[in-house]
């Protein structure tokens, strides 16, 4: 279905992180974008993790989060580019459950859900819903999960022509390759006081991970 959407919308490949690498292309693990910004309440920071991009409207209703894909915001709050805190999101039975704002038991490439640190859950907003479903969990943390307009904008087709030697400059006006397409979004708004930054700043990266097919005991 995702592959269909891509063909429908355009034949293009890479973008912000859309379909950045062969192993994730067309998979529920394919990240499109990460955003981190101050909330409407400036005491809060908002984390947006988008995946499964370039969904045509006709393909969006069938797109869904995957119960075997763990989505994580990894947060370094002391400047060493290693995660000190994680916010984890995973789909289950129509909801997305959130865990974290704790130091993960396992850092790096192989992780597990911090089940002892449940933050809350939110029903996935169905495609076509008039208003987004929003939930508030522990410590006033807000959650959203569901399809949204892809907020990314870029004349990617022209960029490819330039890089491919078929053009020497961008057009004015340009054409937004991502106009009219959707993504699956996870949005979390967190009080800044929970992030414990050492120097007034944090470093964030978004990851997706796949459940190992044979569960292993620790």
């Amino acid at each position: 279905m995702v592959a269909c959407a891509v063909l429908t919308v355009s034949g293009i490949l890479y973008a912000a992180d859309h379909m950045d690498a062969p192993a994730v292309k067309g998979q529920p693990t394919d990240i499109t974008d990460l955003y981190v910004f101050q909330g409407k309440n400036t005491d809060n920071l908002v984390f947006v993790g988008n995946s499964q991009g370039l969904l045509a409207p006709s393909a969006t209703g069938a797109a869904s989060f995957n119960p075997n894909t763990l989505i994580q915001f990894k947060i370094d709050n002391d400047g060493d580019n290693a995660e000190d805190l994680v916010i984890q999101a995973i789909y289950k039975d129509g909801k997305v459950d959130f865990f974290g704002l704790t130091h993960p038991s396992f850092t790096g490439l192989r992780t597990k859900i911090e089940e002892g640190h449940f933050l809350g859950s939110v029903d996935v907003t169905p495609y076509g819903a008039g208003t987004p479903i929003v939930a508030t969990g522990k410590d006033g943390i807000k959650f959203f999960a569901g399809p949204r307009d892809d907020p990314f904008f870029f004349d990617l087709d022209q960029f490819h022509k330039i890089v491919g030697g078929m053009a020497t400059s961008f057009n004015n006006p340009g054409h937004d390759t991502f106009a009219g397409t959707n993504v699956l979004s996870i949005v979390v708004e967190v009080p800044k006081s929970l992030l414990h930054p050492q120097n007034g700043k944090i470093n964030v990266w978004l990851t997706t991970s796949t459940a190992e097919t044979t569960p292993k005991q620790s």
Binding site: D30, R110, W205
Partner: peptide
Amino acid sequence: PEVFYDEADQMGRPA
């Protein structure tokens, strides 16, 4: 049983 997850994709800054 404890399930482990292996990283597939990541990003910080765009592109």
